[in-house]
Amino acid sequence: MAQSTEPKASPQEATAKGGDNTKGKSRKELQQQIDENLRRVYEEALVQEVPDRFAMLLDQLRQKGTGK
């Protein structure tokens, strides 16, 4: 698949050219959609387990911090 080498237009440029991709959504509706998406991603990240390597590093740091 070939990628375009043409630079992407900024949102302001796209709107000025009539390429507004908001599909008639109000600013408030867009903000609500962004909020929902961010909340969903954050919640998904909270339930992920800490990788074993990170857990081991945290244990090592705790041991050094207590002088053991």
Rank of each mutant, 00 (worst) to 15 (best):
R39W: 03
Q12T: 02
T22L: 02
A9W: 05
S10L: 07
T5Q: 07
T66H: 09
P11D: 00
G24S: 05
K23Q: 07
T22P: 00
E44R: 04
E36R: 10
Q12V: 05
P7H: 04
V50R: 06
T66W: 05
M56V: 09
R53Y: 03
A9D: 02
T5Y: 00
Q33V: 10
D35R: 11
Q12D: 14
V50Y: 00
Q31K: 14
R27E: 15
K25N: 14
L30P: 02
G18W: 03
K28P: 00
Q31G: 01
Q12W: 03
K23S: 02
D59L: 13
R53K: 13
V41H: 08
R53G: 01
E6G: 01
K17Y: 04
A55K: 13
P7C: 03
E43Y: 04
A2C: 03
S4G: 10
A16T: 04
V47Q: 11
L57K: 14
N37K: 10
D20Q: 01
K17M: 10
D52L: 05
A16Q: 12
R39K: 15
R39Y: 04
R39F: 01
L57W: 06
V41T: 14
A16S: 06
E36I: 11
P11R: 06
G19E: 13
V47K: 09
L46E: 10
E6H: 09
I34V: 15
G19M: 13
G65A: 12
K68F: 06
K25C: 14
K64E: 11
M56S: 05
Q31N: 08
A55D: 08
L57N: 08
R39I: 05
P51M: 09
D59H: 09
M56L: 13
D35G: 01
P11M: 01
L61C: 12
L58M: 15
K25Y: 08
E13K: 04
E36Q: 14
R40W: 07
K64D: 07
Q12M: 07
P7R: 07
S10I: 02
K25S: 12
S4C: 11
K17C: 00
A9F: 08
K25V: 10
M56K: 12
S10C: 06
I34T: 15
D20A: 11
S4K: 12
L30E: 13
R62A: 10
A55C: 06
K28G: 06
D20V: 02
L46C: 12
E43M: 11
P51R: 02
Q60D: 12
T22G: 01
K68N: 07
Q3D: 09
E49C: 00
T5G: 04
E36H: 07
E43A: 14
S10M: 00
S26I: 04
G24R: 05
D59S: 13
V41L: 13
L46I: 09
E43W: 00
